[in-house]
Amino acid sequence: MTTREPAPSDDTDAAPDARAAPERLRRPEPKRTAPIRNAGRYLRGARSWETDADLGPAPGGAGADAARARAGPAGQAASDAAPCDDPVARGVALGYEVIEEHIRQGREAARGHSNGGGDGAEPVDLAEFLRRALYLYQDAGSLVQDFIEYLAHAPALEAALNLRRPPAEPPPAPGGTAQPAAPQTIGVALTTTRPAEAWTELSPGAGPFTPALDALRQAGGDAPAITDLRFALRSGGNGQMLHIGIPAGQPPGIYSGVILDAASGLPRGTACVRIGG
């Protein structure tokens, strides 16, 4: 350190100190440089916001499984065992019925208003309408929550949406301890001359599968897709490695794609790459 009284600039003070360079400390390489705002994080246990004390002794544990556990054994059986397609299809059908009813009633409301100005029809009770709107908003909020809760724990839909949930505890095996299946893991190797980072996220609890990924695309942009993608077994057979080659002229941004199970075609996770400027 040098300290000097005001004087004409002295370049020697600020000149690089060659002796110091070899001792210079460096920051560690960051694992990532941006948030992961992954969609799979949207649908997790709502009670996870609350504190441990607030959660209380909910069966099935805290965090992402708490909401399901709160539904009790019947709900759990339904969400874990029932096939998703039938109830969901019924839900869609009923949902359309809901919409039709809404539209019908909306039209009635509009007619009621247009008739209420002076032709002797009963005047519209605004305060009552608004109260009801408010009440239903509150009630509908819980309805949607119930729906999402159900859907979030339907296995097929969960896989489709790439939901993240801690793996369920395996049932105890007769006469011994159950060994959970080794989770699938996919590492990433980047070939690029650009500042970039990449990551994968798989549905928790997914067993081994053969991954497939056709391209990484920029959401909402018109940049060309990244197609130089290749899966290979890691050395030692411990999971897979996704090799991504980024062309030199690839525009900066986030590119993402869905990792599929090549055998079933079902989504198993996502791969993302962020290319800096």
Binding site: I99, F129, R132, D139, L143
Partner: peptide, 20 residues
């Protein structure tokens, strides 16, 4: 719930559609 009123369906519709 839908049959209970008229204007309260505004937000309910949107919520139902969100689910859809």
């Amino acid at each position: 719930l839908l049959h209970q009123g008229i204007l309260f369906t505004a937000a309910g519709l949107v919520e139902a559609a969100t689910l859809l």
